[in-house]
Design a protein around this nucleic acid. Structure first.
Length: 222
DNA sequence: AAAACGGGGGC
DNA sequence: GCCCCAGTTTT
């Protein structure tokens, strides 16, 4: 490891990625984009997406929203029917149960509305920091950083942060990353992580920022 | 810190 | 067929 390596220039990094993903706009979860989705739909979509590929999640969300787009409608549908509709997203029995609990709680505690604070979102069953931040960004237009495994892995791989947990990554990015880059960095790293900067075998030969990456030649690539 | 929770897709 | 992938809760 060279000690003369220069610090990562985050402006150049973001600009290079943006040039490489010119059509990428807005969605941290792809299928949420440009549909005028309500905060409840965004929350439900995000729950469905956890540890599940976007294509699978999109189908499940479409089937569910065809009949239920509000907490009342989800409750009316019933847990078994919700489970049937969202299959085959990962952990679908647990998610069906959570969606019932969340809908109940939104009605009982939040007058049927999705709350717009981190604390209130985290108090919902099945909602962790990733989900809460995603709802804040996509549903309420807040400046938040939604750290999924892509953001966590790549932020560390390029040496921009050195952290153990996603929460530590979130806090480090809030300190280091200029606020004007938050959403863009977030969106681009998800796209980048899904396509090129894979966990085990990143496609370094096609990577637009490989020359800025201290892990090139260290991470097993192809 | 590590297991549990269910599935899809790539190889 | 086996390994990789993706958050939150619980032990």
């Amino acid at each position: 490891m060279s000690r003369t390596r220069k610090r990562l220039d985050i402006d150049t990094f973001v600009a290079r990625l943006a040039a490489a993903y010119p059509l990428w706009r807005a969605p941290i979860i792809t299928f949420i984009a440009n549909r005028g989705a309500t905060p409840f739909e965004i929350l439900v979509s995000t729950i469905l997406s956890l540890r599940t590929k976007d294509e699978v999640t999109g189908g499940a969300a479409a089937r569910l929203f065809a009949t239920a787009r509000t907490p009342e409608q989800v409750l009316a549908l019933g847990e078994a029917e919700v489970a049937r509709l969202i299959y085959p997203v990962g952990f679908y029995p647990t998610k069906a149960k959570r969606l019932m609990e969340i809908s109940r709680m939104l009605l009982d505690v939040h007058r049927g509305e999705v709350p717009d604070t981190m604390a209130a979102l985290l108090a919902l069953p099945g909602v962790g920091r990733k989900t809460a931040n995603l709802v804040l960004v996509e549903g309420f237009g807040r400046d938040a950083i939604c750290v999924d495994t892509h953001v966590h892995r790549i932020s560390n791989r390029i040496g921009y942060v050195r952290t153990r947990t996603p929460e530590q990554t979130e806090m480090a990015l809030r300190r280091k990353l200029p606020r004007r880059h938050w959403v863009r960095y977030n969106e681009l790293l998800v796209a980048f992580g899904q396509t090129l900067c894979r966990p085990q075998s990143p496609h370094c030969s096609r990577c637009p920022v490989s020359d800025m990456c201290p892990r090139i030649g260290v991470t097993r690539s192809r």
